[in-house]
Simulated scan of single mutants.
Amino acid sequence: MEEAQKRLQAELDKVLGPRRAQTSMQGSGGGTVLNFNGGTVFFGNGNQINNVFRLQPKITVVQNCGGTLDASQKRRLLDLRDQIVGVSRVLEGHQVMPATVMRRLNSHMHVNSYAEIAADLFERAESYLVRWRSRLEGMPGATKSPGWRDRRVQAIHARCKELGCDRWRLNYMRKVFGKVSMIDLSNEQIDKLYRAVMDKK
């Protein structure tokens, strides 16, 4: 029995690596109970159950040292991820999964998890996802995605505020569309206005 236990111990060590099992008690009928990291392995003979494993799943711990993203910054990145996924769903041949977005973000930022992104690099991570979303939203059919119009209008207002060109925007709308309120514009007109504003220097 001792030799068999050693063989099983060796097999467990191969699977568990540094999480070595240690014998904690002898069961009846010559069986043995091994405990390790809160998991249990039962093996034995006679009326005992053989080779039943209850192992804790492997857990990846992200070291969140000072200077990483706070909760609101993480939420912003996850919201952008969801928007990218939402827009991609209405675009034939461009659908992406949430895990794909985060994997590409992590690769772009050279981290294992978005939670490891340094706080002073948040704008770079945000910009990466915003540009990705904008590329998708500029494709034919993107106007069908949830929130598309609201995001376009918000971006127009933000850009005009940045450039101080609200008067120019109103004149453009009046000249090109014959209207002065974005509420009255169709999605196609909103998109045309968005592109004109974004191209303005």
Rank of each mutant, 00 (worst) to 15 (best):
R19E: 13
N47F: 09
L91G: 05
T32Q: 12
V180R: 04
N171Y: 06
K200R: 11
Q9C: 13
H110G: 05
G39A: 07
H157P: 02
A196H: 02
D184F: 05
M102L: 12
V90N: 05
R133Q: 03
D199P: 00
T68M: 02
G38A: 08
A115H: 04
S24K: 12
F53D: 13
L16D: 01
M102Y: 08
D120G: 03
S181P: 02
M97C: 15
R131C: 01
M97P: 10
E162H: 07
V130R: 00
Q63V: 13
K6I: 14
Q154P: 09
V33F: 08
T100G: 09
Q56P: 07
W132A: 00
F36S: 07
T100R: 05
N35K: 15
L91Y: 06
N45C: 15
R7E: 15
L129V: 02
K201V: 02
D199H: 06
L163I: 03
V62Q: 08
D120C: 04
V180K: 06
S28R: 14
G66T: 13
T40G: 07
D13R: 12
D79A: 10
D70C: 07
D120M: 08
E188G: 05
K58C: 06
R104K: 12
R169W: 03
V130D: 01
V96T: 05
A155Y: 00
A155T: 01
L129A: 02
N106H: 04
S24T: 15
Q56A: 13
R167D: 13
A71I: 11
L8K: 11
L78I: 11
R75Q: 12
P57F: 08
T32V: 15
K201R: 09
G44T: 13
G29N: 13
C65L: 10
V176P: 02
D150W: 12
L105I: 01
D79E: 10
N171S: 08
E3P: 08
L136M: 06
G29C: 14
Q9K: 15
K161Q: 09
H157N: 10
Q48V: 13
E188D: 07
Y128S: 00
V41P: 02
A21E: 08
A119F: 11
I84S: 00
L163S: 04
A99R: 11
E3V: 14
D120Q: 05
F177L: 05
I59P: 05
L55D: 05
V111H: 00
D150I: 09
V61S: 10
N35A: 13
D184K: 03
R174F: 04
G93I: 09
S72F: 11
T143I: 09
N50M: 12
A4W: 15
D166L: 11
G178L: 09
K144L: 14
A71V: 10
K175N: 09
E11F: 14
Q22W: 15
Q26I: 15
G178H: 10
Q63E: 13
K161P: 05
K192C: 06
A99Q: 10
A125S: 02
